[in-house]
Amino acid sequence: MAFFFQNVVNALQWGSFYALIALGYSMVYGVLMLFNFAHGDIFMTGAYIGFFVATMFVGLSATGILVLPNWLILILTILISMFLTSFVGMAVERVAYRPLRGAPRASAAITGLMVGIILETGNLALLGARRQKFPELIVSQTYDFGGVSVTNSKIMIVLVSIGLMIALHQFVRRTKWGMAMRAMAYDFVVVPLMGVSINLIAALTFGLGSALASAAGILFGIAYPVLDPYMGILFGWKAFVAAILGGRGSILGAALAGFLLGFIEIFVATIFPSTLRDLIAYSIILIILTFRPHGFFGEPYSAQLRL
């Protein structure tokens, strides 16, 4: 039994990353009907920005200029990085997507891939190929609940992720900006005629998605403290799968599918030989999509942002 719950804990942590990143894909699709294929690399950029902010604060504390406790550094790192990374997302939208808004969908998908490659190789050129170690902001403590090992960082990661998802939900649901986003998702031809600026809403959507990806990047850095410029590629793909599985454009669906993907990966590796993990995990997802081609919460011929 302990074995089972241990894997549930493992899957919850792993799924939170997929969920946070899948949200960014899903929101952009919901509003602009395009998949931002640079999103995995925005996640990577967010993790690196987090790395720099955290290293800066740790450095300031160490030299005694600005002594802050670690938990405060962590909160500041998450907030500042989310803020900065949202500008990266907005810049990507401005440079790579806005000029192509009338162009065929495939062109926009390809510019996304290119922006991704630019972010990866730009990072490589800037920092070199050496891996960076994310500073240890949380002194890892392992608690043992009847054979189930849970660390304080794991609890924090799952709670922060769920908190961010609720915050996003509230934002889209309860604010005027959120309402504009939902309206735009409903019809991006008519709504701009009512005086809602599509450029503003597109920037907002990219900014929000990127901020979440940045939070995911920092949490990832805490759990797996080795950062490299290509860390976002595979992760981006898998989170994209989660976004599709959740139903394109559905925020709730993306979050749930992210966790589901985490559970499937972990439990397949647990039950079957781990060599077959991705083979079996993604076959399962293929079968799900065969029966529900629009994902859990998606509907045919509609890209409404559902909440």
């Binding site: 894997n7 493992n10 781990s274």
Partner: peptide, 20 residues
């Protein structure tokens, strides 16, 4: 006798199995 594939970062499922 557990395995993973290049670029994986989470080994919790495999390590839990080994521990068990």
């Amino acid at each position: 006798y557990e395995s993973f594939t290049t670029k994986d970062t989470d080994f919790s499922a495999q390590l839990t199995k080994i521990k068990d």
